[in-house]
Design a binder for these strands. Structure first.
Lengths: 228, 228
DNA sequence: TGCTATTAATAAGA
DNA sequence: TCTTATTAATAGCA
């Protein structure tokens, strides 16, 4: 049940197709004594520089491969360490590929990320006393930050501000329903299946079950209109 | 400028310390003819099973290492393929480690994820005609789904439903401000710095610049109260 | 943490 | 896609 014999790359894909394994005669004679024809089948993996891949086709192949690898790593990390992981990926043309129960995690993330919406200094923002001198906590805090920490602190405030903006945009003018590009029936299915093909996910606390057990799928949606 | 000589593992960390490279005499004599003392320095990498690591210490080390690896992969993918990637990670004790401009991506994700809030069949949900027979698109769609695709379709609908719930909970009773554990000044800083230590991220469209250029930081926040 | 011996991921090619 | 030849990640130690 566990003995997978040879290479046990953790199979994440549903076993729709059994791997044919074209030429199983490679391990037989490893010595290249005869070697009638083996003009170096491939160059093997090459070292690449981490910069944007110019050739579109190659870039897409790499995107697919590495995305798969990334999701697999995430699944392993999730299982090994009991962590919850969510990944959101937008391709160049704004296709969404996600891993994990992103929505749940996003919700959790938003709730835990400290964003204060009140700006009136008299507001009661839970336990942390904030109004003693007319300054909000983030205004007061900056006075007590050591000089060498200012860079970090500024960055933290920047993040806070961004959270705030995001939050406001989520709460306020909620035109999402109007803005959404329709999502018609058949196309939705087609897109979903298309997107789903390249997914191997399964996550969010114990979804990744090694070899053959039931795998949940990640959230697989694609923007119906790829940015024109 | 590009010639890094030996092992050029893409350095993601700021070059605070130069790698000392303890014993550079390994390549000199590869043959173990003399081998005065080499009682197996390490066992090397072992193959492990993908299941929750029991030993807490080991689990934490693995979490740290693999999280680093995951973020590095994400950064590389982002640069190589011009993709936007955001990762949210909750550790066992609900510490947040994130990568990329999560907030921006979350916002984008929420806007693009097809969640329909209207339930009245006469509603105008953009171009995709939905009301011809009194059924909403997702109700009608199911009629045209081939039987062998039903499993996938049901999963898709489940995801949709979850999106809907998340969305509603975000829009509706927004008690987040009340619920948030205060986020007091000094603790915020301390936590931020603590969390930030383990981060190597940098992403969101060109943040990852190979070796030594300026790295943006990921969104680094930690839940002030680790779940008690 | 840093160091290796290994395993795992993947760039090219077919 | 599938198959290698290589590079990259990392498990176990110190």
């Amino acid at each position: 049940m566990e003995d997978v014999g040879e290479a046990s790359t953790i199979t994440c894909l549903p076993p729709a197709k059994q791997k044919p394994l074209r030429n199983p005669n490679l391990l037989a004679n490893q010595k290249k004594e005869t070697t009638p024809k083996k003009p170096r089948t491939t160059k093997g993996r090459q070292k690449i520089e981490i910069k944007e891949i110019e050739v579109e086709n190659r870039r897409q192949v790499t995107f697919s491969k590495r995305r798969t690898g990334l999701f697999k790593k995430a699944a392993e990390l999730s299982v090994l360490c009991g962590a919850q992981i969510g990944i959101i990926t937008f391709s160049r043309c704004d296709r969404i590929y996600s891993f994990g129960n992103v929505d749940t995690l996003v919700d959790k993330y938003i709730r835990k990320t400290p964003v204060m919406l009140r700006t009136n200094p008299g507001g009661n923002v839970a336990a942390g006393g904030e109004n003693n001198d007319g300054l909000m906590w983030w205004e007061r805090a900056v006075e007590s930050v050591p000089e060498e920490d200012m860079e970090e602190y500024k960055m933290a405030l920047g993040v806070l501000r961004e959270n705030l903006l995001t939050r406001i945009s989520q709460m306020g003018n909620d035109r999402t329903v109007e803005n959404l590009p329709a999502f018609p029936n058949e196309m939705a299915m087609a897109d979903w299946k298309l997107t789903n093909e390249n997914l191997m996910a399964s996550n969010d606390r114990g979804g990744y079950l090694g070899n053959d057990a039931g795998l949940d799928l990640a959230v697989p949606f694609m923007s119906p209109k790829p940015r024109q």
